[in-house]
């Protein structure tokens, strides 16, 4: 067994660090889009909007029922063959769209569960003061559901950050792609992938601290 080439690993740190912004960019944009989409999907399901409800059910079923990698390949390699408008799509955009659709399907289900977990009396109280459906969802139900859904949604965000590594299969040079290229030149695969693993780990751990803070602040209405 050979010793780890720690000097090489240290040299790699700034190289990989340079790709952190792209990874975070893809994850954050996809997360914001997925949250917005998932909230709409969840509301359609909770309110059982005719027709749309069925469409959303199929959407969720498809994106939960097929691997993310397959979905990314569909968007990047498959669809452009039949949809001319998509021929120029770059890897980053395809990855963001794929991550958004994939994670929105999961997040919609946890948001739906959180909405259904809000006590019936909260809906009635909001109705009794004359709120419209939109007002009561936005002002009363979703904020309370957010508290319940926050830990799960944060887990999806963490999962999403790690899943951005799949973008390298679409030719995007992000953290994982950069490590792969470095390793291909140096043949020090263990060192390169170890460095990139540690980078992901640090990002995720940092977020976990933020997650605990967020949950404390969302829980202040129920704290005695």
């Amino acid at each position: 067994m050979r010793p780890l080439d720690t000097a090489y690993m240290l040299d790699l740190v700034p190289v990989i660090a340079g790709y952190v912004p792209l990874t975070l960019f893809m994850a954050i944009v996809a997360m914001i889009a997925a949250l917005a989409l998932a909230s709409m999907l969840a509301i359609v399901r909770v309110l059982r909007v005719p027709v749309l409800d069925r469409v959303v059910a199929v959407f969720i079923s498809f994106f939960r029922g097929t691997p993310l990698l397959v979905q990314l390949f569909l968007f990047y390699f498959g669809l452009p063959q039949v949809v001319p408008a998509m021929t120029g799509i770059n890897g980053v955009t395809a990855a963001i769209i794929g991550l958004t659709l994939h994670f929105s399907a999961y997040m919609a289900e946890s948001i739906r569960g959180a909405i259904l977990g809000v006590d019936r009396s909260q809906w009635e109280a909001a109705q009794s003061i004359g709120m419209t459906q939109g007002q009561l969802l936005r002002r009363i139900i979703l904020p309370q559901g957010a508290r319940t859904a926050a830990p799960t949604l944060m887990n999806y965000f963490i999962d999403m950050i790690k899943s951005t590594s799949l973008a390298f299969t679409l030719g995007v040079t992000e953290m994982m792609g950069a490590a792969q290229k470095e390793a291909a030149g140096s043949f020090l695969y263990l060192e390169a992938f170890l460095v990139v693993a540690i980078f992901y780990w640090i990002i995720v751990e940092t977020l976990s601290v933020g997650q605990r803070r967020l949950e404390t602040s969302l829980g202040k209405a129920v704290a005695r």
């Binding site: 006590d119 009396s121 909260q122 009635e124 109280a125 909001a126 009794s128 003061i129 004359g130 009363i140 904020p143 309370q144 508290r147 209405a221 129920v222």
Partner: peptide
Amino acid sequence: RRTGFVFQNYALFAN
């Protein structure tokens, strides 16, 4: 909007 309702279980907005 023209009737006020007071609930048995208060039903205050928890948030």
